[in-house]
Design a protein around this nucleic acid. Structure first.
Lengths: 216, 216
DNA sequence: TTATAAATTTAGACAAGTCTAAATTTATTA
DNA sequence: TAATAAATTTAGACTTGTCTAAATTTATAA
């Protein structure tokens, strides 16, 4: 199997690949909290193992084999997050670090049984899709609230920023997954928005509106 | 915190200490599947950290601090084994390797919530006691069936050999934790025993009788 | 389109944990 | 109790993953 470090690189390449075609050495270094030189070393190793497509100075992408592994790690991460929230009653801002360790538990049988135990959840506590045992998943069609016009509405279904700080803020405002909201007003000066949720009016900044995702 | 290797050494010293006062370098090497020279290196490191009492050539024992850490690892191992058997329906011979990985998940809060989720079990699937969050536990007063006279009886409550092979054998003979048995006959020639369990007579060898533990 | 900046890679070093082979200490036994 | 065997430690080397500093390549801009 692969080492802890290798798994973390594959996972990081996977996540960065969602936004950019070829992932750069510096992007990886920033995300993995390490130095560019270290990244280069590991990329050579992963390329030798045929888990990535890599050409010097040209950035990197996952091979089919690499993506398969990355998806298994993502699957495990999100299932454990679901477990921690739904079974052990953790809050959605508390589970990331723990799942970061648990995603490396190797047994596939274990993950599959965990999946079944929880009745095959499709989304994790942050609204991110959980791949099935073959790596397949269906993401929500998400839009940032910032892109909605006055009068538009939808259901909160995901976040762009996964930081504990942002999640705690949303919790406090009761802007959590599944809540139906409607945009009632947009402030022209700073683009902040006023939302109608249940019977409350909630005022959110442009920044929050950019990081909070809904399904229409 | 401590590294994975350090945790595994502390755990191994803990287990070996149950049988011997001072644990030897070779014992550790055998249990950890490594070489005596490697053990010596690590013992120096653990001694520097004050987690063990170690004098060259004299063997090793856990310090109070070391034992505390070891007990936390044992607690996690046994709780996860309980989880795997009780919640995910694994068999008792399938869970050791998985728990071996899971015992290194660091969050104490997670273990405590897991403990609560399962209603604070006192014994793991093999009958071994689960330390509470302070490291306290109460072991059964166990005796090998081999030490019982004809006519004596008790309840199966633990095993001395934790190997998958032995556990599978017991499962097949329906000699599992909680079962009440009575010794009805001892064969003088090979010291094998015949047990009465439920309405069945079960013939077990001396070796099995030595490794199967009961509470009287 | 050449000079400069930014990104990336190479070279060489280091810490953790392991190994083999040799040296040392302790235990055993004749 | 001296000689031998067994256990343990030391010395020196190797792997993984990391780092800094220097060199190289690619991108940017005058």
């Amino acid at each position: 199997m692969n080492t802890l470090a290798e798994e973390n690189y594959l996972k990081s390449i996977y996540h960065l690949s969602l936004n950019t075609q070829n992932v750069s050495t510096n992007q990886l270094a920033a995300l993995l909290n390490t130095k560019a030189a270290s990244v280069t070393d590991m990329l050579k190793k992963l390329a030798d193992k045929q888990l990535i497509n890599y050409a010097r100075y040209q950035g990197v992408s996952l091979s089919a084999a690499g993506e398969k592994i990355a998806l298994q790690i993502v699957r495990k991460h999100r299932l454990w997050e679901y477990f921690l929230v739904e079974k052990l009653n953790f809050k959605w801002d508390e589970v990331h670090e723990m799942a970061e360790e648990m995603e490396h538990i190797s047994s596939m049988e274990l993950v599959d049984r965990l999946d079944k135990f929880m009745n095959f959840p499709k989304y994790d506590p942050h609204g991110d899709p959980i791949p099935d045992s073959d790596g397949n998943f269906k993401a929500h069609e998400l839009k940032p609230i910032a892109s909605i016009e006055v009068g538009g509405s939808g259901i909160i279904s995901g976040v762009r920023d996964h930081s504990a700080g942002f999640l705690q803020y949303l919790e406090k405002q009761q802007l959590t997954i599944g809540k139906k909201i409607k945009v009632t007003e947009i402030n022209e000066y700073d683009n902040s928005m006023i939302l109608q949720a249940d019977d409350k009016k909630i005022h959110i900044s442009r920044e929050v509106a950019n990081n909070l995702l809904i399904v229409i």
